[in-house]
């Protein structure tokens, strides 16, 4: 960051002292960890503001995007997966699995650009860029959630196929329950564990995926903050954001483990 300006040895020395670059590496690391556990992630080089403040400022926009994408992908993925499983080997099954395969193979940023092209530039229904109200959320959430929806659909289908073959499903039908009641009440409930696992994992990937989608749609958020910081070599901000997302990812997975026990009383920890 000094190289763009004329620098004197004194300036370089002052900067090194300010950033603690003269200290041995373990000491620098210790200083960072000690600060981090106290909620102090250092100061960004570019804006000279606390990293924590910069993150918290844009966090709501990112969480809003990731949660919307997760809800969309869950609804779409589970519905497609159940329908495909119930009508196994039908055209419906084949069709939804082909859509899912394409969904897994499609880069989110390309889908985002296609959505902008169709719904913003040609049809003019939704805004192409920026943050703000619900209308700014629809296209980014669809672009971000499509891949996750495809993965959830594939998993739901295979898990449901297994569950549908179980004897308790036959029993439930023998008791006189109707198709939908059996599939949702008995089938889906028992298929939920692996689906929730993938939900937790997908939420982490969605959080990381916002990096790309926020760039495509010019939305403010953690992702754009990170990309800007990397390109500017603003290392305190980069390590702060990366650490923050990683901790969030671990906490989500912890939450998933807790939810398991609530859904399936057979699972107990400790």
């Amino acid at each position: 960051m000094l190289s763009e300006f004329a620098t004197s040895p004194e300036q370089i020395a002052r900067m090194q002292a300010q950033l603690h670059l003269n200290e041995p590496l373990p000491e620098q690391f210790g200083r960072f960890v000690w600060g981090a556990v106290q909620g102090n992630l250092g100061e960004s080089i570019r804006d000279r503001r606390p990293v924590r403040a910069e993150i918290l400022e844009v966090l709501p926009a990112t969480v809003q995007l990731a949660v919307t994408a997760l809800v969309l992908s869950g609804l779409l993925g589970i519905t497609l997966g159940i329908l495909a499983a119930v009508r196994q080997n039908s055209w419906w099954d084949m069709g939804s699995m082909v859509v899912a395969l394409i969904g897994v193979s499609m880069p989110s940023f390309w889908l985002g650009l296609l959505l902008i092209l169709l719904f913003s530039l040609y049809l003019g229904w939704l805004p192409a860029a920026g943050g703000g109200g619900l209308e700014h959320l629809v296209l980014p959430a669809c672009a971000l959630g499509a891949g996750a929806a495809a993965i959830i659909a594939r998993l739901t289908r295979s898990t449901m196929l297994e569950v549908l073959r179980m004897e308790y499903m036959t029993t439930a039908r023998a008791k006189g329950l109707t198709g939908a009641g059996v599939v949702l009440g008995h089938g889906l409930k028992n298929a939920l564990i692996p689906i929730i696992t993938i939900f937790g994992l997908q939420f982490g990937s969605l959080l990381a995926g916002t990096v790309i989608i926020e760039t495509v749609f010019g939305r403010p958020g953690i992702g754009r903050l990170l990309v800007g910081a990397i390109l500017y070599k603003d290392f305190p901000l980069v390590q702060g954001v990366v650490l923050f997302v990683a901790v969030g990812y671990v906490l989500i997975n912890l939450a998933v483990d807790v939810i398991y026990a609530a859904i399936d009383p057979r699972i107990r920890y400790g």
Partner: peptide, 18 residues
């Protein structure tokens, strides 16, 4: 594993240079 894949890759690129 605590880092979602693409985030780890980004962090590494930021250190190594793009």
């Amino acid at each position: 594993l605590a880092f979602p894949g693409i985030l780890l890759a980004q962090a590494i690129v930021s250190v190594l240079g793009p």
